[in-house]
């Protein structure tokens, strides 16, 4: 019980410090600490799958994404287009936000006592999917449409980010040129960590069938393991005009839709798995989706191509 109070207080303290920080870099460093603490909070809420995702995406990829932006924006004095609100206005905004938080808190306190839950239904139908992990079962079978739409959203995000390429830069290698600092330690890490990370990612993907784990967490780790050598300047990202790159990013959702349509033909319902075939089909989708989303997440963090001035 004390641990929960301590954890909650620590998260709130880091969150407040993060938005009040003077320098953007400090705010992002605090945000990474916030991501780490949040994944511990998810463990206390006994949602281990979400803890894995929050650790991989919240603390890892989001932090590195914002750090990259801080580095590229640090070189120019950022002229604030609109001046910060005055003291009175800030207090007013503070009160309004406190009201929103209080209202949400009241909702939490007034939740219906026999908490409505779909757990029994999931438990009843899980054996049909042949999976042991209920969250993976929901993701891949009962709510497979959400997962399909989500992988499509990731694909769309890649298209949108690439569409921000300044003219003349189209087709080039994505992302700004990484400064080759000749940092010994970074090069060391960029050579040692990726192989380990790939083994961990495969382990988490495979274990995801019966225990917390799964494809999004594995994809985030794989993306991180590609970004590390890119940051160290060891690996030049492929040109976005490269056909195989576009194919890899698109193959995940395409395979998912194809299997969904096949289900519609044979079983009469989109995304329905023929009985007995659920497990192998889900496995195929998971593996293809992991590779596709890993590449997509990495490309999202790398960003659009930036032509040298």
């Amino acid at each position: 019980m004390i641990a929960d109070l301590l954890l909650a207080a620590a998260i709130l303290a880091v969150a407040v410090a993060s938005i009040l920080a003077r320098r953007t870099f400090t705010a992002v460093a605090l945000f990474i600490a916030y991501g780490l603490l949040l994944s511990l909070a998810w463990v206390r809420l006994s949602a281990i799958d979400v803890a894995l995702t929050e650790a991989a995406i919240g603390a890892g990829l989001s932090g590195v994404l914002l750090l990259g932006a801080v580095r590229r924006l640090a070189s120019r004095a950022e002229a604030p287009a609109n001046p910060p609100p005055g003291a009175a206005m800030t207090v007013l905004i503070g009160i309004a936000c406190a009201c929103v938080a209080a209202a949400l808190g009241a909702v939490i306190l007034l939740l219906p006592e026999p908490a409505p839950s779909l757990a029994p239904q999931v438990a009843a139908n899980l054996p049909t999917t042949g999976l042991g992990n209920p969250v993976t079962g929901v993701l891949m079978s009962f709510r497979a449409l959400d997962t399909l739409l989500e992988s499509a959203v990731v694909l769309l995000a890649v298209i949108c980010v690439w569409s921000l390429t300044p003219d003349g830069g189209w087709g080039g290698a994505p992302g700004a040129a990484q400064p080759i600092l000749g940092d010994g330690p970074l090069l060391l890490l960029a050579r040692i960590l990726p192989p380990l990370g790939i083994v961990v990612a495969v382990h988490i993907l495979w274990v995801g069938k019966d225990a917390p784990g799964g494809k999004f967490q594995a994809a985030a780790i794989l993306a991180a393991m590609w970004l590390l050598p890119w940051m160290a300047g060891l690996v030049a990202p492929p040109r976005i005009a490269a056909r195989w790159l576009r194919l890899t990013v698109a193959v995940g959702p395409v395979v998912f839709i194809a299997i969904g349509l096949a289900g519609a033909v044979t079983e009469g319902a989109f995304l329905a798995y023929p009985p007995g075939w659920a497990m192998p089909l889900i496995l195929v989708i998971e593996i293809v989706l992991t590779a596709s989303i890993a590449v997509a997440l990495a490309l999202l963090v790398i960003g659009p191509p930036v032509p040298e001035p």
């Binding site: 940092d183 010994g184 330690p185 970074l186 060391l188 890490l189 960590l193 380990l196």
Partner: peptide, 12 residues
């Protein structure tokens, strides 16, 4: 993993 990462981050 923690050893390797702190060995790399330390000098930086």
């Amino acid at each position: 993993l923690v050893l390797v990462s702190s060995a790399a981050v330390g000098p930086m």
